[in-house]
Design a protein around this nucleic acid. Structure first.
Lengths: 164, 164
DNA sequence: TATTGTTATACTCTATAACTATA
DNA sequence: TATAGTTATAGAGTATAACAATA
């Protein structure tokens, strides 16, 4: 289980600390903005945004769950909340009756439109304001690569069904 | 309240998406590791790590709360859990009787030592494994700058106590 | 009066396991 | 049998407001 403890270089350590700090503060501010502007939790916003981008404003529950890295019960819960507010509808898939298709409503798009400008402004202010165009390009390149790396190496023991 | 909605360039948008994705997946994996290896929540780990680094292994509650971006009640809750497990002690400050000083115990350092290698390994695997030394250096520089920017511009309405 | 910290409380979120139904 | 989703439940975490004690 613990062969030989790897180390982080000073740069890596510093980068990691900075990353966690930026992540935490940015998340905090974004959540506050979403709640203030549209009564949305971060997850709900992500779900609406994904549905808004999807063709027809629809996606299968499972696909939604994959995108947001959620347990399916958690997704059901959040989508229920959105449905109660009339921002989303649910219906069984015509192709596969086991599947549920979630679809964003006009009201849902309305909330999204209400929330979006402030969301963008927050991100721009907090994340990009102090950076040059080159910095941003580099950040984009590196983070995209890490993201791909993470998607390629999903957490080994995280989603395991049975095991022990 | 909505003067002129700013926009994100394609690069910025892509960087932001990648950032949130990396942040979410990394956090997920780290939390799982900390829980598996030492029964620690992420916040508890942060608290122990800060105390472990602090001179004498001690810090005031308020200073701890500042570092972790927490409500003070939330901090009290987490420190209570750590104290119940004997990983931390609390005592009133000699200088200012209003203050409480939290101090990490030997057991606390033990848990920290148990958890640390796996924590480092997780971060290295997930965050740095796919990057070159130059990438890491650039990432460190940019994120450190953003972090400083965020610290300089604290969320306006977030932590305000008394207000008007 | 202002600051430090705790408590009481209420709420949100999340995951696990059991369950239904379709394939 | 395997997959998609829901439900029931239980627990962890968080914030707000009221409170006590000290400065």
């Amino acid at each position: 289980m613990s062969p030989s403890p790897p180390q982080l270089s000073p740069k890596e350590l510093s980068a990691y600390f900075a990353f966690t700090e930026v992540s935490s503060l940015l998340r905090h501010s974004v959540e506050k903005q979403l709640k203030d502007a549209g009564q949305l939790s971060y997850v709900q916003f992500q779900l609406l945004a994904r549905l808004g981008d999807a063709p027809g404003g629809s996606q299968r529950m499972t696909d939604l769950a994959d995108g947001v890295v959620y347990s399916r019960s958690g997704l059901t819960y959040q989508v229920q909340l959105l449905e109660q507010r009339g921002l989303v509808t649910r219906a069984p898939s015509p192709e596969d009756e086991r599947s549920t298709i979630a679809t964003i409503t006009d009201d849902g798009r309305g909330v999204l439109a209400t929330v979006f400008p402030g969301h963008i402004a927050t991100v721009k202010d907090l994340l990009f304001d102090s950076l040059t165009a080159d910095d941003i390009e580099g950040l984009e390149r590196v983070l995209t690569q890490v993201s791909a790396h993470l998607r390629a190496n999903p957490p080994r023991s995280a989603g395991s069904r049975k095991k022990s």
